[in-house]
């Protein structure tokens, strides 16, 4: 059983990906043992009509049987009437969470709407995901250069919202070590392994942050799904550690929010 917390549907704006069609993505997820995938849409990066993006995302996730794909909607707090989008994600589409893309949406974390969005999402019991990076800045298209999200303010923002459960995507190798530790100490911030690097990287990671903070994430289909799966093999991990990373920690986030 694997819960993959970092999956996207639709098209990456600058390249076709081998698994960017729904049947191929589902086939690959299942072949690698993924039983749940927290799924957002690449359309949410650049489309202004995020209402349409979220509606299509929810519909596509419903097409796939057994609840394999769980939709995480896009909310952009710089758009007019963004609170309605949050409401729809929760009440209309019954999404378990939302995925934020501050760098593609052109705001920094001191934007007043961001703090409010965290408050409102937490009040609704939604998991909040925040993608720190989508693409290596060294190789971006010259007309679409998007810096990593500056997470300097994030520890204080998390502390200010006691009910918040925050999952950082594509953050490892990018967050400085002291910030990683500060966020981990809150007990309400989680990190997935898609961008984790280094030989036996997971074994090293769990010496720096509590095991309970570590989730399985692949960033598929932009990244090759097998990368995350093989990282589980590369580190010498106990069965209990593997269970925690592959599904127990992610399942616990949802449980905590429901309580």
């Amino acid at each position: 059983m694997i819960i993959d917390v970092n999956v996207y549907l639709s098209r990456w704006p600058l390249r076709r990906l081998p698994c960017d069609e729904l049947p191929k993505l589902v086939e690959r997820l299942q072949a690698c043992g993924v039983t749940r995938a927290w799924t957002a849409s690449f359309d949410g990066l650049l489309h202004k009509d995020v209402g349409g993006v979220n509606e299509r995302l929810a519909a596509e996730c419903r097409q796939v049987p057994a609840g394999l794909l769980q939709p995480f909607g896009t909310v952009n707090p710089t758009l007019p009437d963004w609170r309605e989008e949050l409401r729809r994600c929760h009440e209309v589409h019954r999404m378990p969470g939302i995925r934020l893309q501050p760098n593609y949406h052109g705001y920094t974390l001191d934007h007043p709407g961001f703090a409010e969005l965290l408050q409102l999402a937490a009040a609704r019991g939604l998991i909040v995901q925040l993608a720190v990076r989508m693409e290596d800045p060294r190789m971006q298209h010259p007309l679409l250069r998007v810096p990593d999200v500056d997470t300097t303010l994030l520890p204080d923002l998390v502390t200010a919202v006691p009910d918040l459960q925050l999952v950082l995507l594509n953050a490892l190798q990018i967050l400085p070590g002291d910030r990683l530790s500060a966020l981990a100490r809150t007990g309400r911030v989680y990190f997935e392994i898609a961008t984790l690097e280094g030989v036996a990287g997971i074994a090293s990671l769990v010496t720096r942050v509590p095991l309970e903070c570590v989730l399985f994430g692949s960033y598929s289909p932009f990244f090759i799904l097998e990368s995350a799966v093989l990282k589980l093999r590369e580190s010498e991990l106990s069965p209990a550690q593997l269970d925690a990373i592959t599904f127990e920690n992610a399942r616990r986030i949802g449980t905590q929010l429901r309580q």
């Binding site: 072949a31 690698c32 043992g33 097998e226 093989l230 010498e236 106990s238 593997l242």
Partner: peptide, 15 residues
């Protein structure tokens, strides 16, 4: 030999 999850032994990840 690695202690690996079942997924790492699936054909997609069989090294």
């Amino acid at each position: 030999r690695a202690v690996a999850p079942a997924a790492a032994g699936t054909p997609a990840c069989d090294l």
